[in-house]
Simulated assay, not measured.
Amino acid sequence: MGLKPKDEQEKGNVVPLFQSGDYFFHRGIEAYRKNHLQRAIKLLERAVKITNTEPVFHVQLAAVLSEIGEYERSNEILQNVLTEKDDVAECYFFMANNYAYLGLFEKAEKMTLRYLELCPDDRFTNDANDLLELLRFEREEDDDWDDLEEDEDELIAQFERASYLVKQGEMQAAIAVLETIIDEHPTYWTAHNQLAEVLFRIGDASAFDICETVLEKDPGNLSTRCNLALFYIKNGDAKSAEPYIKSLCQVYPMDGDHYMKVAETLCSVGEYKAAYDRLKELTRWELEQKAELVYCFAVATYHCGDRKKVSPLCKRAEELGSKQAAATLALLEKGPVTDDQIRFDIWVD
């Protein structure tokens, strides 16, 4: 971030290693470089708690929060840094980027101009000028933001309707809604992926064609790769699934929904260690946003050998509404189970 943390060991006052904010800061940086973002956040939060007066700790925490989409919290931290120490000009540039991601282009432009005023020749100056040009282009391109927001709201409502129909088992009705969305928004890949899933679940092989078409136009689409890994495994074709599973094992998505989707998919196809490595990085609050995610963690934990934690996790998942967890708890209460009985299915609610 361009700032050097203060030395934690002042003359004549040695700070024990595990009480040092600097120690947790550097561990957080290491986790960040490995793209273990949730772990990086925990470590940086610890560094901030121990050494609250070090601006660089706060700024780095804000940067990682921005990468996982927590732009508001990131900006709150950056604003607090500026309140305490107004010479950390980089905060304005980072806040500008956050505002841009939030779609608050006027605020983003204001922060960018403030940074350029303070730092006309600094390491982020070129990036700030590029951002300013982009922000002005965005504002000129579309003068009617309200109409755009209405279109987006309608699209989201249509997709939520389709997802609800899938959960209710009304597949044909869901297909009709999804096809309408695709006709109106041809590059809305989320609808393509949902349609492929529905078609596969009713035995329509055209699901594979949809996935291949999406990958031709959007080669890095994670949801499509998740679908193909699941489709082939459920068809008993492990060889065809292998390249998609391998690619999923290599990614740690920054987007929270994608991160969880990849973890659930890996667990569904039997890659329990890879699923566990991702889910263990989540906080309890993040896990419990979805009952089936808690159950997914229970299954991954079981297959990674930590059997003592399985029943408590299943009980919590059942409390949150997981049908799979309830069924697994019943098996565990009857007596010994086989590994094949402890499974996770991403499509069961």
Rank of each mutant, 00 (worst) to 15 (best):
residue 3 L to V: 05
residue 6 K to E: 10
residue 7 D to K: 09
residue 11 K to D: 10
residue 15 V to E: 09
residue 15 V to Q: 08
residue 18 F to V: 10
residue 19 Q to E: 10
residue 19 Q to K: 12
residue 20 S to N: 06
residue 21 G to Y: 02
residue 26 H to V: 07
residue 28 G to D: 05
residue 32 Y to W: 13
residue 32 Y to P: 03
residue 33 R to E: 04
residue 35 N to Y: 08
residue 36 H to Y: 06
residue 37 L to G: 01
residue 37 L to V: 01
residue 39 R to K: 14
residue 39 R to T: 08
residue 42 K to Y: 01
residue 42 K to P: 03
residue 43 L to N: 00
residue 46 R to K: 15
residue 47 A to C: 05
residue 53 T to Y: 14
residue 56 V to G: 05
residue 63 A to F: 04
residue 66 S to Y: 06
residue 67 E to S: 10
residue 77 I to F: 00
residue 81 V to E: 00
residue 84 E to Y: 15
residue 85 K to C: 12
residue 88 V to W: 00
residue 92 Y to S: 02
residue 93 F to C: 01
residue 94 F to G: 03
residue 101 Y to E: 15
residue 101 Y to F: 13
residue 102 L to M: 12
residue 103 G to E: 02
residue 104 L to H: 07
residue 106 E to P: 04
residue 107 K to L: 05
residue 109 E to Y: 02
residue 110 K to C: 06
residue 120 P to Q: 04
residue 120 P to D: 07
residue 123 R to I: 09
residue 124 F to M: 11
residue 125 T to I: 06
residue 125 T to D: 10
residue 129 N to E: 15
residue 135 L to T: 05
residue 136 R to L: 11
residue 137 F to I: 15
residue 138 E to D: 13
residue 142 D to H: 12
residue 145 W to M: 09
residue 146 D to S: 12
residue 147 D to H: 14
residue 150 E to V: 10
residue 151 D to L: 08
residue 154 E to N: 11
residue 157 A to S: 15
residue 157 A to I: 07
residue 161 R to N: 13
residue 162 A to P: 01
residue 165 L to Q: 06
residue 166 V to M: 05
residue 169 G to T: 05
residue 170 E to G: 02
residue 170 E to D: 08
residue 170 E to R: 09
residue 174 A to Y: 01
residue 176 A to S: 15
residue 176 A to K: 15
residue 177 V to G: 01
residue 180 T to A: 13
residue 185 H to N: 15
residue 192 H to T: 03
residue 199 L to H: 02
residue 204 D to M: 08
residue 206 S to N: 12
residue 208 F to W: 06
residue 211 C to L: 02
residue 212 E to V: 10
residue 213 T to S: 12
residue 216 E to L: 14
residue 218 D to L: 12
residue 221 N to G: 05
residue 223 S to W: 08
residue 229 A to S: 13
residue 231 F to K: 01
residue 234 K to Y: 13
residue 234 K to D: 12
residue 234 K to T: 14
residue 239 K to R: 07
residue 245 I to Y: 03
residue 246 K to R: 14
residue 247 S to T: 11
residue 248 L to H: 04
residue 250 Q to D: 13
residue 253 P to H: 07
residue 254 M to G: 15
residue 255 D to N: 15
residue 256 G to V: 12
residue 256 G to N: 14
residue 257 D to S: 13
residue 263 A to W: 06
residue 265 T to V: 11
residue 266 L to K: 02
residue 267 C to D: 04
residue 267 C to S: 12
residue 267 C to P: 02
residue 276 Y to S: 08
residue 279 L to F: 06
residue 280 K to L: 11
residue 280 K to V: 15
residue 281 E to L: 02
residue 282 L to M: 08
residue 283 T to Q: 04
residue 284 R to A: 12
residue 284 R to D: 11
residue 285 W to D: 14
residue 286 E to C: 07
residue 287 L to N: 06
residue 289 Q to S: 07
residue 298 A to I: 00
residue 302 Y to A: 01
residue 303 H to W: 05
residue 304 C to G: 00
residue 305 G to W: 03
residue 306 D to I: 11
residue 309 K to M: 13
residue 309 K to E: 13
residue 312 P to C: 06
residue 312 P to H: 08
residue 314 C to E: 01
residue 316 R to A: 03
residue 316 R to T: 06
residue 317 A to Q: 04
residue 318 E to K: 15
residue 319 E to A: 11
residue 320 L to I: 12
residue 321 G to H: 05
residue 323 K to N: 14
residue 338 T to C: 09
residue 339 D to R: 03
residue 340 D to V: 11
residue 340 D to W: 11
residue 344 F to T: 01
residue 347 W to T: 13
residue 347 W to L: 10
residue 348 V to D: 09
residue 348 V to L: 14
residue 348 V to A: 09
